[in-house]
Design a protein around this nucleic acid. Structure first.
Lengths: 252, 252
DNA sequence: CGGCCGTTGTTACCGGTTGTTACCTGGCGT
DNA sequence: ACGCCAGGTAACAACCGGTAACAACGGCCG
């Protein structure tokens, strides 16, 4: 599983400064050179460990190197809402940049390695290196956009559409495109999937079973294999793309 | 209505540089001095006018001076999901900072005045004035947090809870706290409320009627008056606060 | 190695909340 | 006055949640 998700981060070497000496290409193309970050630390998390808690002090962003994290917020009466899953190459903690405390908590869903980026260091470098600052802005906006897509999913789609979009999204983030027959590792439980998608775990299970029966996917242990990408896209309410076309469908 | 929502922005004078010469206090305490922004322009929008469209070029952020805007994204098959309503003091366009194109569109729900802040200008000032840059970061994170709250609303709450939270949120943003008997202007249609809350307009109508019958609120033309704040908070699944307590319930 | 137990996942059935459809009312502008 | 649109109401249907029973898996310990 780690070998799948490492793809987007494979130029990265973190912690002890081995070659190549960059943290890797994060979303939006930020590349960080470790020689400028002597204080960078790597952290290992076991499944279930928390990276930070809501209301804890905000100090750092975290670049995911391998594994998977969930970020969640709580209702006053204790219900958990997962607002996102974070894969290698993603940056966690963007909801607290410039603020004192975290508003959400982040926990490892699988054994996970992250690289800690103290925000004070990023900010200092951003002052002198406009590229770093621009990349920070892009990542913040990117986070907003991803959440807007999730709002659309939760507000407008039905259970089967939500699951289908979720699988396609995961697939595109793990590999770089949605291939047929590609396996997607899903270390999270049905309940966590349901929390993210605004469904109950039984509904998640039912819907996955139905897709399996229909031959669209194959449900394997802690993962899914996509059998018919085009049918899955249709279930998601998305246009069926002819072949490896990278989702630029916006030309005015 | 404009007199209600102007409160958070009443120190502001925009466009022609009258006194006091600041744009006003935006969320997160950003104050902009107009003498530094000679190129600032004010824009008037009539109900229904678009401020920008998805896939249009991103050039500016917009500070809402009066009125109300909706920001929405579209599914591939044409359904609209409203991701937020923007009131005076709010900053619109944060989902595209540092990117080329808008991913969402913004339209006036009421007659609205905004102040255009070209991002290039903000960025330039941010380089030399750390306070401005820090404020930008805070506003971006603030936007992420607000969307996370909405994710929680859409993913975990039922119709009545969603409406109640929506009314409380609106009330707290229009006035600074939730007073009893305070009127809330709601220039948006039932369908737009429903889009934002992930409900159909009939459900919105049903639920508001029920709250009215129960004596919790009073539904008036294009607005609502809160009759029993504590019962409304209970409907929203929120703790009932003793008296004007400003929502800091996070002590570890 | 094997059995036990807790966790996670699957399936079935029923009921409730919400979506659908249809029709009506009232206000506003032409 | 007329038509149009936002809003309200009601009956019905669909979808999803709630509950429960069971199966599969994994860890622990004898």
């Amino acid at each position: 599983m780690a070998t799948h998700v490492a793809k987007r981060c494979d130029a990265a070497v973190c912690g002890q400064c081995e070659q190549p000496c960059v943290l890797g290409t994060l979303q939006c193309g930020l590349r960080l050179d470790l020689r400028e970050f002597p204080e960078l630390k790597e952290r290992q998390l076991a499944r279930g460990d928390y990276l930070f808690h809501a209301s804890g002090a905000f100090e750092s962003l975290y670049a995911v190197r391998s594994g998977m994290l969930k970020v969640s917020v709580l209702t006053e009466d204790g219900r958990e809402q997962i607002t996102g899953f974070f894969l290698p190459g993603d940056l966690v903690g963007l909801d607290s940049v410039g603020l004192r405390q975290h508003a959400s908590s982040a926990a490892a869903i699988d054994d996970t390695v992250v690289c800690e980026l103290p925000f004070a260091v990023l900010e200092r470098h951003g002052q002198s290196v406009p590229r770093i600052q621009a990349a920070l802005f892009r990542m913040l906006s990117g986070q907003i956009r991803r959440e807007q897509s999730t709002l659309l999913l939760l507000g407008s789609l039905r259970a089967e559409e939500r699951l289908a979009q979720f699988l396609i999204d995961l697939s595109e983030r793990v590999h770089s495109d949605t291939q047929c027959g590609s396996a997607i590792g899903m270390p999270m439980t049905r309940e966590e999937i349901g929390s993210y998608l605004g469904l109950k775990l039984e509904t998640v299970s039912r819907t996955l079973s139905k897709m399996h029966r229909d031959g669209v996917i194959e449900v394997v242990k802690r993962g899914v294999r996509i059998r018919q990408v085009d049918r899955l896209r249709r279930l998601a309410g998305l246009a069926v793309r002819p072949q490896g076309d990278s989702a630029h469908r916006r030309g005015h």
